[in-house]
């Protein structure tokens, strides 16, 4: 049960948030141009890292805003929180 520093609301309990999986997977602009394999890569393939992972989170029971978060999945340490559209921090 970690504490997340929502970029819009501040520190809130984890129970207010939901995780949306790996971050920085951009929806292809021209899906119809993609082969089955390329589309499957976008659609299905996700990393599940033991260690530092870039994730999407949503303040579902709060401001409903999506943002990105850098979390170490092995100890839940949060290294950074940043808004959608911002560049991921270099760690």
């Amino acid at each position: 049960m970690f504490v997340i520093n929502c970029p819009y609301c501040g520190e809130r309990d984890q129970s207010e948030f939901s995780c949306g999986g790996e971050a920085h997977i951009v929806r292809p602009k021209q899906p119809t141009e993609l082969s089955d394999d390329e589309w499957a890569e976008y659609l299905f393939m996700r990393k599940n890292i033991k260690g530092v992972q870039f994730e999407r989170w949503n303040h579902a029971h709060g401001c409903r805003k999506w943002f990105n978060m850098v979390r170490d999945t092995s100890n839940d340490k949060i290294h950074a929180v940043y808004k959608m559209g911002e560049k991921p921090p270099v760690l």
Binding site: G20, V26, R27, R56, N58, A60, R64, K65, W66, M84
Partner: peptide
Amino acid sequence: LYKLEDYLQTEWP
């Protein structure tokens, strides 16, 4: 609503 907000905020801001 959750899904629509997701697309709106993250893919089509």
